[in-house]
Design a binder for these strands. Structure first.
Length: 215
DNA sequence: CTCCCGATAT
DNA sequence: ATATCAGGAG
């Protein structure tokens, strides 16, 4: 199947229809809690992050409070999320910068966010999009996989896929489409065993046939 | 490219 | 047993 512009528009239309009521999976009350949750979410399920942050934010929910907690205590709080030494060190350093340079607030600025330790392009895009309602497409593992399978935006790096998606999707739908692709990746277009049999996009997906049982 | 890393699904 | 999970830094 050759994925024409027409087919991409149809893919986007179906995604928007099926996943119109989706919202962020991570639980947060403000941009700071979102930032911490997204840092913790690397190589970890959102479900596990939500359990961890619920416990953490009860004890410390501001940059100041987390700095007071101390590195060792923070490591224990977030241990279950994996990569916990790196994440704890990065969160402490980030909180330090937020306090010293931004008055304890999270800057609504993509470049400044990316300068924070433990915050790369994907995390900065999530905070801008979800936390500050700015048009952005964060390419995580799900968005990357689904976009490539659909050939909605093919690319061998997250940045290439992000740029492809920005061309294929109207700007006013960037942030919503990011959530559509994540939900689709979680529920249907799974990494290991995609459910092509019950996928609403199977007719417009060039990869679906590859997962059908051979005749 | 490698390393960081525990929990979960298959 | 092993692949995968809302990645980022060196």
């Amino acid at each position: 199947m050759r994925v024409t512009k027409k087919i991409k528009e149809e893919q986007i239309r179906i995604l928007g229809e099926v996943y119109k009521d989706t919202k962020p999976a991570l639980i947060f009350r403000n941009p700071f809690e979102l930032l911490i949750a997204v840092i913790l979410s690397a190589q970890c399920t959102d479900k596990r992050v939500n359990v961890t942050t619920a416990r953490l934010f009860q004890k410390a929910a501001t940059p100041e409070a987390i700095l007071s907690l101390g590195l060792a205590a923070l490591e224990e709080e977030i241990r279950d999320c994996g990569l916990f030494r790196n994440k704890a060190k990065n969160i402490m350093a980030t909180c330090q910068i937020l306090c010293e340079q931004y008055g304890g607030e999270v800057p609504a600025d993509f470049a400044k966010l990316q300068e924070l330790p433990g915050v790369g392009r994907k995390t900065a895009n999530v905070v801008m999009s979800v936390g500050f309602n700015a048009p952005a497409i964060a390419v995580d593992t799900h968005v990357f996989r689904v976009s490539n399978r659909l050939k909605l935006a093919a690319g061998d790096t997250p940045l290439a896929v992000e740029q492809g998606l920005m061309k294929a999707i109207p700007k006013d739908k960037w942030s919503a489409a990011h959530h559509w692709l994540i939900w689709h990746g979680r529920n249907i277009c799974k990494a290991r065993k995609p459910l092509c049999g019950k996928c609403p996009l199977a007719d417009v997906c060039p990869t679906a046939i590859d997962f059908q049982p051979s005749p």
